[in-house]
Amino acid sequence: MSLAHRVIIGAMAAGLLLPVGAAAENARSLQKEFPKLDVTRSAISLRELQSGGVPRDGIPAILDPVFVPVREVTGLGEDEPVIFLVGSCGAYAFPYRILIWHEIVHHNQCGVPVAVTYCPLCNTSMVFDRRIDDSVLSFGTSGRLRNSDLVMYDHQTESLWQQFTGEAIVGAHVGKALNVVPARIEAWRLFREEHPDGRVLVPPVWGRSSYGQTPYEGYDSAPEPFLFQGKMPRGIDPMARVVRVGTRAWSLTYIRKNSPVLTADGLRIEWREGQNSALDRSAISRSWDIGNVRVIRDGTNVAYSVDFAFAFRAFYPEGELTK
């Protein structure tokens, strides 16, 4: 178990979140760990970066994923969350019980190299096309956070990338952003029913984590986010979930009140019960029900994420949030 995970667990057990590893970053410490990183090119102040308590790759990405057919999967709780992609090559699911320990998984979806990412501290799931210009990038975890969100780095130039937005924030690729790939986040049983011939990510053979257990037990009910020093949102609990499409968001509470279907901005936002949180009880399969969300425009899946409200407001201070 990583130091960052132990820090969070200890803070939760004590009933508070500790500012461990909160020292601001500087150019010298960054270049020591990322010698190829061009620190002279930056879209942010380096002081906005904080150590999450682990070094580069301390939370190891999965670069060579292994999948098995749906019929061979055992042990997954019926309502455990998975994020999945569907295309002409089939459907591929990535269980959160694995993502929560690795945060980045590489995959080739019907010829498109993608990175499936999850930041537990912001509850943000995003899938990115890994192609930039004429290059295909591969990513790892930098060990840094910004606004409590995962900061990734690419192996080719060691540029730093913000997981919440897909934007390069320090390094050679500053000014560029990864394209977001639409994906769905639903319960395992729903994926299995709709895609009985689908394939599912399994833990790497080198993995040693307690898959199925969350290292962030109780984070949903924390009084405030971990290692976040920005302004808290007004009129909504900072740890409340919001459904984000671009720079527009709706609170999950609002969507549930207007379920099963909310129409807004040309979108059809559907909600149905039956999906466990990955950040509640120790066993994900026993966690509280946050429900399933699907976002569609003109019959086509739209890229969205289910984030904590503090993160949405931090990255989109002028974004529209319906509470």
Rank of each mutant, 00 (worst) to 15 (best):
A177S: 15
R286N: 13
F84Q: 13
C119F: 02
V180E: 12
S29V: 07
A27S: 14
P113R: 00
P69M: 03
N147G: 14
Y92Q: 06
F139K: 06
E167C: 02
R192M: 03
Q109E: 13
F191W: 08
T40M: 03
E194G: 00
L201A: 09
R71L: 02
D57A: 14
Q213S: 12
D298Q: 15
A278W: 03
E78G: 03
A249R: 12
G207E: 06
G291Q: 14
S251A: 07
I98D: 08
V295Q: 10
G87C: 13
V39S: 06
A91Q: 10
G246M: 07
D237A: 04
V73H: 11
S210M: 03
Y304E: 00
R41N: 08
C122L: 01
L145G: 05
L279Y: 14
V105H: 12
L63M: 11
T322I: 11
P238S: 09
R56T: 09
C122W: 00
W101G: 11
D220L: 04
V261Y: 05
I169N: 14
L178E: 04
P225S: 01
D38M: 04
R268K: 13
E80Y: 00
N292F: 06
H155I: 00
G52A: 08
S282G: 12
I9M: 05
S42P: 09
A177W: 06
V20E: 05
K257T: 01
S159N: 07
V86G: 05
A311K: 05
A303N: 11
R313E: 13
V243P: 04
D280H: 10
G21R: 09
V243A: 01
V245M: 02
